[in-house]
Simulated scan of single mutants.
Amino acid sequence: MSPLACCLVALAALFAVSDANMINPFCSSVSLGESMVHEVTFNMNVSGGDVFIPNKCPEDHDLKGQDLNVCNIPNSMPEVHTFTIGKHPFEKVYIDCPNNTRGCSSLELQVTQYCEVPPIG
């Protein structure tokens, strides 16, 4: 594909993602657990495969849920699969993004964690 054609495809993809009413065909999202008032948001650079997500809640707060969003624009839609591991159900996910697909070795995973505020007293 010529450089001009590549630029046009990328530009079309950017216009598609900029429309808030459309679902982005290059992104995958999953919500786990409960949403709480206290949120912690951070990004991780990951590749396809097993991904371990650190608990970024303050020390005295319990991690109760998290939202994950990962994109591979304009190449493919990675899929997020979840696992339940003992006491740490939010610690590990598997991102299915074929290694032969461009961009799968460098994905940005956005994580929003919901932390339970301990009772006062």
Rank of each mutant, 00 (worst) to 15 (best):
A10C: 11
C104V: 02
V51L: 09
G49W: 04
A13D: 08
P78R: 00
C7M: 12
V40S: 10
F90A: 04
P78K: 00
P98K: 06
G65Q: 05
R102C: 01
D50W: 07
N45C: 04
G121L: 12
G48H: 00
G103N: 02
G33F: 07
L107Q: 03
V80S: 03
V80R: 02
D50L: 15
E91R: 14
E34I: 08
H81P: 00
V117M: 10
M1E: 11
A13F: 03
S35N: 12
V93D: 01
L68A: 01
P89S: 07
V40N: 10
V40M: 10
T101G: 00
D67V: 09
V46I: 15
N100K: 08
K56F: 07
S18V: 03
M44D: 04
P119A: 08
F26T: 05
V70Y: 00
C6D: 13
S105F: 05
L14D: 12
E39S: 13
S2P: 13
H38W: 09
P74F: 03
V51F: 04
V46N: 00
H81R: 14
K87D: 15
G48W: 00
T84G: 10
F26C: 09
M1I: 11
K56L: 11
D67N: 15
P74L: 07
N24C: 10
V70G: 02
A16M: 12
V111C: 06
P74H: 04
A16G: 08
K87N: 14
A12T: 07
F90I: 04
H38A: 13
A5H: 12
C27M: 06
E108V: 14
R102F: 09
F90Q: 03
D96W: 01
I53E: 03
C71R: 02
N75Q: 09
Q110V: 08
A5M: 10
S76Q: 06
P3C: 10
C97F: 00
T41K: 15
T112S: 08
K87V: 09
R102T: 10
C97E: 01
I120Y: 09
E39V: 10
T82E: 06
E79L: 14
L68H: 02
N21V: 08
P54E: 13
E108Q: 10
I73D: 00
E39Y: 02
Y114K: 03
K64M: 15
D62H: 08
C7A: 15
L11G: 08
Q113L: 07
N24L: 01
C57D: 03
D96E: 14
N72D: 12
E79S: 13
I120L: 13
N69L: 14
P58F: 06
P54I: 08
Y94T: 11
N21Q: 14
K64N: 07
L107R: 01
V30W: 03
L63P: 07
S31M: 11
I85F: 11
L8G: 05
V80I: 15
Y114A: 02
R102S: 10
M44I: 05
I23A: 15
S105Y: 05
V9K: 12
E91C: 05
E34F: 11
T82C: 05
C57E: 02
V30Q: 09
V46Q: 01
F42R: 07
N45T: 15
I23K: 14
S31V: 11
Q113W: 06
L107V: 08
